[in-house]
């Protein structure tokens, strides 16, 4: 049998990969994909605990997280398109209009 630690460690590795991507990349779409990666690693933790505790609530939460991720994808990509139309770039270093 696979102990639950393995799933949790894989989830931690994927989450930190997403964090490093958000911190180092400057392309808005790649930052967006890194956020999807972090959401997925949290989903993995939910499903692992759901299976090991025998409680279906964790899988319900995964369902809702996926719904929120779909909504976020639609709105986020619309923002990226609006940004590109105004600035001709998706590099977030060039988008500093709200920077104090």
């Amino acid at each position: 049998m696979i102990p639950i630690h393995y799933y949790l460690i894989l989830s931690a590795v994927m989450f930190i990969t997403g964090v490093v991507g958000v911190l180092t990349r400057r392309n808005a779409i790649i930052i967006f994909m890194c956020i999807e990666l972090m959401l997925n690693s949290v989903n993995l933790t939910f499903v692992a605990f759901s299976s090991y505790l025998g409680n279906a609530t964790g899988q319900m939460f995964v369902f809702f997280v996926m719904a929120v991720a779909a909504a976020e994808a639609a709105v986020g990509l619309a923002i990226v398109i609006a940004l590109f139309r105004n600035k001709q770039t998706v590099n977030i270093n060039d988008v500093n209009i709200l920077k104090w």
Binding site: M1, S50, G54, N55, A56, F63
Partner: peptide, 25 residues
């Protein structure tokens, strides 16, 4: 707590089935 979780709960197989998920949902 984690060390006690060396194997899945006995009802894990039917837990993830569509029927059970729909029931709870």
């Amino acid at each position: 707590t984690l060390n006690a979780m060396q194997q899945m709960a006995p009802n894990a197989v039917q837990n993830g089935m569509v029927q059970n998920i729909g029931d709870v949902l």
